[in-house]
Design a protein around this nucleic acid. Sequence first.
DNA 1: TAGTTGATCGTCT
DNA 2: GACGATCAACTAA
Length: 197
Amino acid sequence: MRKLPRSFYLRPTLTIAKDVLGKLIIRKLRGKLLIGKIIEVEAYLGEKDPASHAFRGKTKRNEVMFREGGHLYVYFTYGMHFCANIVTEEEGIGHAVLLRAVEPIEGINIIMNNRKMEQWRNGEMKQLSNGPAKFCQAFDIARKQNGTDLLGDEIFLAEGEPIPKSQIGISTRIGIRNATEKKWRFYVKGNLFVSRK
DNA sequence: TAGTTGATCGTCT
DNA sequence: GACGATCAACTAA
């Protein structure tokens, strides 16, 4: 499984957001491997983007967003949820790509256990990881993983099947109050794990 | 099926 | 002191 190089993360954020669809995210957990295919993301463009945590500059909370591309920014919200972002572009630029949904490829029984679903009714498979906080719970990503380098061994991305351009959907972002007109959400059309239609 | 709300807390105002 | 890059459970119809 070839790890994506640092140079992948040092390109324009919107380019990465489209390009990362179909890539594999690999998580090493207690000696086991969890693998998911990235299905849905949103871009957050820092100082250009009123909806971004980094819009008002660097703070203690969003410090990781300003690191060199290829780190993981994990934040806590709504008193109970974590969300994970891939930090992009050069050091000093507060851009990131929010991971919204993933299709589980390997380690599904561990993922089910993390999500506390010992069994599911027919058609509930997608509940495993069809939302940003669900994905974090499924892959056991929390505060400790904030700042993880994606070129290390704990969490990293690898090449997957490329998604044809015609299969990539574009829409406005979800769950924000500002900059709602910006179409910076990208997803794989028709995939079961897309969080909304 | 659409709309509303409770859970729950770190961060910024 | 208010609220959020969310989710799930509930209500009404």
